[in-house]
Write a protein that binds this DNA or RNA. Structure first.
Length: 884
RNA sequence: GCGGGCGUGGUGGAAUGGUAGACACACCGGACUUAAAAUCCGGAGACUGUAUAGUCGUACGAGUUCGAGUCUCGUCGCCCGCACCA
């Protein structure tokens, strides 16, 4: 049988059918074995899989197949994140119904995924656009509403005045609508929110427990939640002003710099600003100006600070008789803190920029430490004050408070405490002037989308009864199929009859909510639905709790914040409403890198796809030309595969020409999985060659066994022993590397083992009785090691070797610990830290004996040249270092 | 600006503080072949014209250590995330 090439095109569909028929990857909720849940982020059904999917699902599949072999009850499901804008765009551009378009895409992508030979339990497949899925989401929304986890409030949206539609943030490009090009306006709509901010502290604290998450993702979430501790502080208005208000409340994290305050600034959206603008045309114009610039990126990037004096003045809270001017400033945000600040220019960069522009006082109150010959010392106050008088950089470092009355001499933290106590004891408008407060950057999660293709929010608006949830017995609220997209705006809203219903409470005429849910809601619980995909309730809590949390979740970093944070919140909300019994959905998280490719450009400057380019290597030189026209092609930089740069490689074509195993193997080899991988023709060729190499090795082994069918196996000779050791080492390391998701290292181990086995096969004929058994066993183990990565090849080899059953069902090989250790060890010998030789001794040789041996060595004596060693460091079994 | 990460041969990358460059790709040489492909064997960090020898070498500069790619400090460069959050 040797000499015959392995044909993946023939074998891959064959084995896929065998696994299907045997229901190999269907997992049972009743299986008593220890569960293991591995999940890759489910795809949006765009219609075609891309190399990023291949990489993502290859990794998950290795984990799934490995833990199956280790005897765990593995859950490895797949579904579709099927709601979202592209379906509506297809409807508008091609006149296709979003549902039909989406379901066609799902079928096409499913076929592609199946051709990869993934160990997926397809019986649990779910698509978020199906009423069977979103009815449960609607039910949970109602539960969460009842539990006080949902609220309704006004919020701004991006409004495209030409298309008459609400735009998502990513549809706003440089302040204009992506389709119409019209300048986008901000409009206020009443929308639904999940009260995720109520969980800010808990979501923050629980991050510490997610030890199997990348540190990077945890930091990103921590920053996103953005906890800060500060003081709410009331500033009394001077009497006789143009407003009825008597005070302004600000939030600050630097109350210690209060003696350095030189102005108050209000957000353009502050209620007091609106009140004042009503009687002040210049201010009204300024506020309008700020709104126009609000979305324009140039303003943000330049960061120009603009403000307008309101004419109001407040009393300085700690300097008797002093007052501060009140400005409206473009850089003050309404939705953080109180929408008003006090400015201390000396110690805040923004405030300093503002002060320089409007010529406001700069009063230093924190004295930095300076480095002197004697060490660190306080800076000279007068010198610092005169330096700051013309300085353009604020001092934000540590130091001692000065220039600040009763705070003088305190460190910053102590001063914060002292000033907080001071203001807590004083009263303004009958309340404490200052209150310590913790603030979070995290806002509530607005889930309303003015879109057709999403899960309907199950609410009915009644003129009489108000906002009424749809009774659970009436769920699901199903999207109508007969919609048209010829009018701009929300097709659901335009539907002639859908929204007209009777109020479930009073029976009178009422109106359905026509907003649908953010698709992030869909993806915030699908992992739980997989545990009981046919249940009549959203979950079966006992079953969900047995599988969850997901042991290993794998996906792109682009979801590091929103999807993962929302899922963490939603799991808590599901717990609060009795749908699961746990807080954290994902125990282990892994974020894989992107797939990149070289870019190519024609002389005309157009991007050229790799399929139309021939790359030629001439020594060190690489040149490219067009496959048809032969015109020279410029080889450009390596970029993430994207349609716009045309540097994409279609997985279908790779599977058709090289087979799924080759694509999978290449995705796993070489590059560490968390880093970007570069797709290269040479790399794929190499993967394909390795596949053939394994196949030849198997064939050769079978031939050797046939030729030696009459020999009696004797005991191992040294070659056989060496081979067995190599095998056990490889089994050990590959297992550990897969568990640690170091697939590239697992691959390297397998290469090494293959090299050893090929060499071993060449040595069998000389002594078959002593060596054949070791080879055969080694090749069998090799097949098992590659099975999680190249499962089709592995099955073919397994069968050829005459092994019963499927390698997919074979238990992971056991490691004999005795074969992992050598009885001798080679220790390098260093002289003054430089390697000068080595010595091979029995393992565990005592240091004293090693020292004697080393000093008696000629080469060492030569290097020492008669000098006596000052010290000899010996780490047993590791290294010798002679210090002269 | 703030936060995080990274910097190792021609390339992707290995290396619990202990022999730097495993493994692979590309390259070069040889074998087989009429020839090519495929395959097999071998070479290879740089420099010292030779190499069983030596020197240098993990972005750069210091430091800790018997010993540093790995730890500490500083500099430079690249990448990512957040970005007027008071």
């Amino acid at each position: 049988m040797s000499g015959e090439r392995y044909n993946p095109r023939e074998m891959e569909p064959k084995w896929q059918k065998v696994w299907d028929d045997a229901r190999s990857f269907v997992s049972s909720n009743d299986d008593p074995r220890e569960p293991y849940y591995v999940l890759e982020m489910f795809p949006y059904p765009s219609g075609r899989i891309h190399m990023g999917h291949v990489r993502n699902y290859s990794m998950g599949d290795v984990v799934a197949r490995y833990y199956r072999a280790k005897g765990r009850n593995v859950l490895h499901p797949m579904g579709w994140d099927a709601f979202g804008l592209p379906a509506e765009n297809a409807a508008i551009e091609r006149g296709m119904n979003p549902g039909i378009w989406t379901r066609q895409n799902i079928e096409a992508m499913k076929a592609q995924l199946k051709s990869m030979g993934l160990a997926i339990d397809w019986t649990r497949e779910i698509a978020t656009c199906e009423p069977d899925y979103y009815r449960h989401q609607q039910a949970m929304f109602i539960d969460m509403l009842a539990a006080g986890l949902v609220t309704r409030k006004k919020s701004k949206v991006n409004w495209d005045p030409v298309d008459m539609t609400v735009l998502a943030n990513e549809q706003v490009i440089d302040g204009r609508g992506w389709r119409s090009g019209a300048v986008v306006e901000q409009r206020e709509l009443t929308q639904w929110f999940f009260k995720i901010s109520d969980y800010a502290e808990e979501l923050l604290e629980a991050l510490d427990g997610l030890t199997e998450w990348p540190e990077k993702v945890r930091i990103m979430q921590r920053n996103w939640i953005g906890k800060s501790e500060g003081l709410r502080l009331l500033f009394e208005l001077e009497p006789g002003q143009t407003t009825a208000a008597s005070s302004i409340e600000v939030f600050t994290t630097r109350p210690d710099t209060i003696f350095g305050a030189s102005f108050i600034a209000l957000s353009p959206d502050h209620p007091l600003t609106s009140e004042l603008a009503a009687g002040n045309p210049a201010l009204a114009e300024f506020v309008a100006e700020c709104h126009r610039h609000g979305t324009a990126t140039e303003t943000l990037e330049k960061g120009e600070k603009l403000g307008l004096f309101t004419g109001l003045r407040v009393k300085h809270p700690v300097i008797e008789g002093a007052t501060l001017p009140v400005y409206v400033a473009n850089f003050v945000l309404m939705d953080y803190g109180t929408g008003a600040i006090f400015g201390c220019p000396a110690h805040d960069q923004r405030d300093l920029d503002f002060a320089r522009k409007y010529d406001l006082p700069v009063i230093p109150v924190v004295l930095p430490l300076v480095h002197t010959e004697a060490g660190y010392a306080d800076a000279d106050p007068d010198a610092f004050i005169s330096k700051m008088a013309s300085e353009t950089e604020a001092y934000v470092g540590p130091g001692k408070i000065f220039n600040s009355g009763f705070l003088d001499g305190l460190e910053i933290e102590a001063a914060k405490k002292a000033i907080a106590a001071h203001f807590a004891a004083r009263k303004v408008d009958g309340q404490a002037q200052g209150t310590v407060e913790v603030n979070y950057r995290l806002r509530d999660w607005g889930l309303s989308r003015q879109r057709y293709w999403g899960a309907p929010i199950p609410i009915i608006h009644c003129e009489v009864c108000g906002t009424i949830p749809v009774p659970k017995k009436d769920l699901p609220v199903v999207l109508p199929d007969d919609v048209s997209f010829d009018k701009p705006g929300n097709a659901l809203d335009h539907h002639p009859s859908w929204k007209h219903v009777n109020c479930p409470q009073c029976g009178g005429a009422a109106r359905r909510e026509t907003d649908t849910m953010d698709t992030f809601v869909d993806s915030s619980w699908y992992f739980a639905r997989f545990t009981a995909p046919d249940a009549d309730t959203p979950t079966i809590p006992a079953i969900a709790d047995r599988w969850l949390p997901v042991d290993q979740y794998i996906g792109g970093v682009e979801h590091a914040i929103l999807h993962l944070l929302y899922s963490r919140f939603f799991t808590r909300a599901m717990k609060a409403t009795g749908h699961v019994g746990l807080d954290e959905p994902f125990k282990g998280l892994f974020t894989q890198g992107m797939v990149t490719h070289e870019t190519y450009k024609s002389p005309a400057g157009e991007w050229v796809p790799p399929t139309e380019v021939v790359v030629e290597t001439n020594g060190e030189q690489r040149t490219a030309r067009h496959i048809r026209s032969s015109e020279p092609i410029a080889i450009g930089s390596i970029e993430k595969m994207s349609k716009s740069k045309k540097n994409v490689v279609d997985p279908d074509e790779i599977v058709a020409s090289y087979g799924a195993d080759t694509a999978r193997w290449f995705m796993l080899s070489d590059s560490p999985p968390e880093r970007d991988v570069q797709w290269t023709e040479a790399g794929v060729e190499g993967a394909s060659r390795f596949q053939q190499r394994v196949w030849r090795l198997v064939g050769e082994t079978i031939d050797l066994a046939k030729q030696s069918s009459d020999i009696v196996h004797g005991s191992d000779d040294d070659e056989a022993k060496t081979l067995r050791k190599a095998v056990h080492r490889a089994v050990h390391h590959v297992g550990a590397d897969i568990e640690g998701l170091r697939f590239n290292r697992a691959v390297a181990q397998i290469y090494e083992l293959t090299n050893a086995l090929v060499r071993g096969a060449g040595l069998v004929s000389a002594a078959p009785a002593a060596r054949l058994d070791a080879l055969q066993q080694g090749v069998e183990r090799l097949v098992q090691l590659i099975a999680p990565m190249m499962p089709h090849l592995a099955e073919t080899c397994w069968q050829a070797l005459g092994k019963p059953g499927l390698v997919t069902d074979a238990p992971w090989p056991e490691v004999d610990p005795a074969l992992l250790v050598d009885d001798t060890v080679t220790m390098p010998i260093q002289v003054n830290g430089k390697r000068r030789g080595e010595i091979t001794v029995a393992k565990g040789t005592p240091a004293a004996e090693v020292e004697k041996l080393v000093l008696s060595m000629d080469e060492i004596a030569r290097i020492l040249d008669g000098k006596a060693p000052k010290k000899i460091v010996i780490v047993p079994d590791r290294i010798v270092n002679v210090v002269v």
